[in-house]
């Protein structure tokens, strides 16, 4: 099994930048939190007391398989699958959009079914197999749906794209990509505020008509 470190090891300059950006964001949000909390909490944060306080709350064991790799985790009951993927497993491809099940940016597959990971409690995923956007490609070879999204310009800003692609793959596997109308109906749980919908539909139709096993 590949270690968590090797998964997140920067491999080129861009990734180094990306990863520094994430670390910066984490640190700056901590600083912001500190700036707005009372003095005693600042002192506590200095002494890492916050981490000790967190450990007092009951954590539960969670065994799940993510993109083919087994994980043994310890999670708070209130942690969502989305937060566990992003914050504990560093799988930040799955996006947090609305965080209330309204936008679809957090779509992942659980035992083959697409779901909203933001409304899924991690503790309820014990023994489940999760597939995220990171699990679709085979090494450098993109999944046909990823290729099709690039070819058809199925995105502008790209924020909704991981959720769109996970949903699109499920849409075909479920047999709900028979027509443009059906695709639009069965992709309605994924919102794209850039409005790339026509291109997303084209991408899905191409993969569907290509007939490859996805």
């Amino acid at each position: 099994m590949e270690s968590k470190e090797s998964l997140t090891m920067p491999v080129n300059e861009q990734e180094v930048k990306d990863s520094s950006r994430r670390i910066f964001l984490k640190q700056s949000s901590l600083l912001t939190a500190v700036a707005f909390t009372p003095g005693i909490a600042v002192k506590a944060a200095d002494l890492h007391v916050d981490e000790e306080i967190a450990a007092v709350f009951e954590k539960m064991p969670l065994k799940m398989e993510v993109n083919g790799k087994p994980h043994n985790l310890s999670v708070e009951p209130r942690s969502t699958l989305l937060d566990i993927l992003r914050e504990q497993l560093d799988l930040t491809g799955t996006k947090k959009g609305c965080d209330h099940g309204q936008c679809g940016a957090c779509t992942v597959h659980v035992d083959g079914r697409r779901i909203n990971s933001c409304l899924t409690l991690g503790v309820m995923m014990n023994g489940k197999k999760i597939t995220t956007i990171e699990g679709l490609a085979h090494g450098d070879q993109l999944h046909p749906m990823q290729e099709a999204f690039i070819k058809h310009d199925g995105f502008q800003c790209g924020y909704c794209t991981p959720g769109q692609i996970m949903s699109a793959v499920a849409c075909i596997r479920e047999g709900h990509a028979g027509s443009e109308h059906e695709i639009r109906e069965y992709m309605s749980g994924n919102i794209c505020r850039c409005g790339a919908y026509p291109n997303i539909v084209n991408a899905i139709q191409e993969v569907k008509n290509g007939g490859q096993a996805i």
Partner: peptide
Amino acid sequence: GASPQLRNM
């Protein structure tokens, strides 16, 4: 009702 993802849950 809802979306395919929500109906799956």
